[in-house]
Design a binder for these strands. Structure first.
Lengths: 196, 196
DNA sequence: TCTCCATCGCAAAAAAACTTGCGATATGAG
DNA sequence: CTCATATCGCAAGTTTTTTTGCGATGGAGA
């Protein structure tokens, strides 16, 4: 029932190829078992690699997870630019919702929340999200230039509000995010940032 | 360096008293070491109780945590009723922010997000939050009756939005929540639910 | 008060997680 | 192409976590 899920390999693999192999196996393991059930032993088996090598290279499971998630999650949520703040925000929220509901997206959200004392992991997570949030703030900034948005509006607050909503839905409601939610959320917030 | 932190007890304790002792020790342990560093061994020592008893009664650490957090966290965030939706929402958000920043509040938020496959835990967590959120929706409903809020406004959406914002702040920004945030957040949302 | 029994402490043992020494081999530098 | 070296597989060992059998006891009910 737990047959090795890798093809037999005669030669030893190491370096970049080794890393890629392990990272892919990690992502696959996250997707199939959930981020809380990823163990070095499983990943090693799936990657056709030895467990001890994982201990040596990544030292701890959280380190492996953050490495895999961050390097395998580039630009999953694009920043739209349609010329309309409403459309942009709705698209952004919709894309975010879709990604948040994939196994990897859920894992990323859950993992980002899980506290961990290792400072390097903590900073990696923070940098990751700050980067994403700052990118999304661009939607608001463009709206300001077009006169669609009140210049005094807090771009970060808007992004955090929408992001937090999706976040809560995924983590607490568990059930799927209604397709109408992004539109409703944007409609709720938009009047608060339109020029008076 | 790790001296037993409990008073010596000659007699054996069990039943409700045993449970209370362990739950208190668990809360104390969460507060002092963070929810990720709570182990049966520590809690048992602090409670002056045997580790194996914890394994038998709660089986896993997450079960103990959810039990302790839920039974020791009653009505930490009151639902205000000042006659003004703006004031009510602001007070609610402020109280939520304050609680969210206590060690127990943070633990509760973080833990609620952490995935766990045990179905009973999952449902406990969901029920807990749904109960809190539903209570907060009352603020909006009262506003509708007073004509302050558009009857078509989605009370749950409002609550989820504010809650999600605080949630995100605690989990991602790590740093303290600015005292101005609750007011800003309410100001952002209010125009979206006022009668047109 | 007395008895019964579920619950607890204790200790031993099983399982899981993590570490380490050593020989082998990719891989990159010269 | 050849060599030096860091990285990997392997297996044995160590530590931490979880389980279990058994005797003891507190507490509920007769």
């Amino acid at each position: 029932m737990e047959a090795p899920q890798h093809e037999e390999r005669r030669t030893q693999v190491r370096g970049a190829k080794f890393r890629a192999l392990v990272l892919d196996a990690t992502i696959a393991r996250i997707a199939e078992a959930g981020i809380d059930h990823v163990r070095f032993a499983d990943v090693a088996d799936k990657a056709g690699v030895h467990e001890a090598s994982l201990y040596r290279r990544w030292k701890t499971v959280p380190r492996l997870l953050i490495d895999a998630l961050l390097t395998r999650t580039q630009a999953e949520v694009p920043i739209p630019d349609t010329g309309s703040v409403r459309r942009d925000l709705k698209m952004f929220t919709t894309d975010l919702a879709r990604f948040a509901q994939t196994p990897i997206g859920t894992a990323l959200i859950r993992f980002t929340v899980a506290s961990d004392n290792a400072p390097d992991i903590e900073s990696s997570r923070r940098e990751f999200w700050m980067q994403r949030l700052s990118a999304a703030e661009e939607i608001i900034e463009r709206g300001k230039k077009r006169g669609e948005v009140d210049p005094g509006a807090d771009a970060r607050l808007v992004v955090l509000t929408l992001g937090g909503l999706i976040h809560l839905h995924v983590t607490h409601l568990g059930t799927g995010i209604p397709t109408t939610l992004p539109g409703q959320a944007v409609a709720l917030i938009l009047p608060g940032i339109t020029p008076s």
